[in-house]
Design a protein around this nucleic acid. Structure first.
Lengths: 258, 258
DNA sequence: AATTATTCCGTAAATTTTACGCATTGTAAA
DNA sequence: TTTACAATGCGTAAAATTTACGGAATAATT
């Protein structure tokens, strides 16, 4: 959706292709320089940051819609994606951003009963992606994008701050029962790297010795015969996820602390 | 909705009052005679059992809609209610039950583009209720109701068997992190009662001595000075939930096994 | 060659979970 | 009335897991 013509078609006829009243709003987590980041888009004219959301096509399975939207924005196909909550306790959140803005910012005439101005429930997804592999695609509505540190999220459009908070909470709870990291780290990683990742996500210190002991005992990672040459000091060994064990743990869950 | 006139109005004008494309489908758990039960309704004419679902009013917060629907069906106001998943991977599930049936069973003419025949996402909720306090309200669409044992659920309409399975799975996972029982048991209960409840939900045996030790150690229940006179044998003491501790555990979660 | 920062192996203490033994109590059967 | 039985309820010991931490080894820097 890059030309004004396409946008105009979307605004006035989008409800024929997409299901109205429901949007998908993904919180995309990436990990970079030992910080947990979230991808946000700046909406043109709205003077605000928001999640890279989208709509469900009328004959498209829900989970497929979520993957499509993620793929459109990040050009990634290998990612962890999970639904976590439906937000719909503020029925008026979209109307408030009235049709006036469409006219002022885009010069578009929008009827008061336009589908985009109606009440919309928001299905929250969270995604874990390899930061280095993401190439963000922007469109007509999108002015800019930026990876924000989770500890430094700006005020977001509508009630999306709540969405981000709940996504983070869900991620932190989930890390106790499911392995996390496959989609946040490069294929080969060092113990200090995955250790810092977990500390970052959980926001607390974890004893490195016990942590690696645990991961190896669970059979989730295996040591390789290579080392990573970091700038100074001793080269740490590289590790890799045991794909099978990892998948199994994703399915069955694990019961433990780190 | 008890008269044909009301039903006719709902079918033809319901989309003015309710949000189309989204339904709320609650899985209502009750506990009776040491069995975990689910409340299902038999839909008139459709020859099938289904969840007691409903729609969201256009200006009604989502969570309020869920409470309203539960209240309408069970006449309960004190219950545990939680959203757990949105189902929408079978886009055609409603269309299949075409408008023909409305005509055959109810004598209603339904246009092919009627809102009730369009694709509908289903927001799954699960509720825990005190079986003995429920009085089921049926309406024009509802022929019968029955509390089914969870181990004996019949084939349900649409893909609601998946909904029930996921609800049960969620309940079983959740019981490890949150106290459960306040809404499933009477106010005062015995150790054997709550013990059997947990065994029933988890579907496995739990050492009674360690189980009660745990609950008391967590400060979740307190012993009363009364006993319950069961038919035979020694009268067991009654216990009660510590409301404050219980609420706190609901908020913060507990990390343990039983 | 000495210094320093970091990796990484191992062990001991503390805590938690699990497994049961058995006295107690109240009803039912003999 | 006595005996038998079934279920409650308390306590303790063994097993397993988690937590804490000492210190050797390594590799770049000075």
């Amino acid at each position: 959706m890059n030309t004004l013509e396409e946008v105009n078609d979307f605004v006035h006829h989008g409800h024929q292709e997409y299901l109205p009243h429901v949007s998908i709003d993904p919180v995309i987590f990436g990990y970079y320089q030992q910080k947990l980041k979230i991808l946000l888009l700046r909406w043109k004219g709205l003077d605000g940051w928001g999640l890279p959301g989208g709509f469900i096509k009328r004959r498209e399975p829900l989970s497929q819609a979520a993957y499509r939207i993620l793929h459109e924005k990040t050009n990634l196909s290998d990612l962890f994606l999970q639904q976590f909550h439906v937000f719909g306790d503020s029925p008026y959140r979209v109307q408030e951003r009235s049709g006036r803005e469409y006219k002022e910012k885009f010069g578009l005439e929008v009827e008061p009963d336009n589908w985009l101005l109606e009440r919309t429930l928001s299905i929250g997804y969270f995604a874990l992606v390899d930061y280095s592999k993401v190439s963000v695609t922007t469109d007509y509505f999108t002015e800019d994008y930026y990876w924000f540190d989770v500890s430094d999220i700006p005020p977001l459009l509508f009630d999306q701050n709540e969405t981000v908070e709940k996504a983070l909470l869900t991620l932190r709870l989930q890390i106790y029962h499911q392995p996390i990291g496959y989609n946040l780290l490069p294929e080969k990683f060092t113990i200090p790297e995955i250790h810092t990742l977990y500390e970052t996500i959980l926001g607390k210190e974890l004893d490195q010795r016990n942590f690696s002991k645990k991961l190896i005992a669970l059979g989730l990672i295996k040591k390789l015969d290579e080392r990573r040459s970091i700038g100074a000091h001793r080269s740490p060994f590289l590790y890799q996820f045991e794909k099978e064990q990892y998948e199994q743990a994703l399915q069955e869950g694990i019961m433990h602390t780190y």
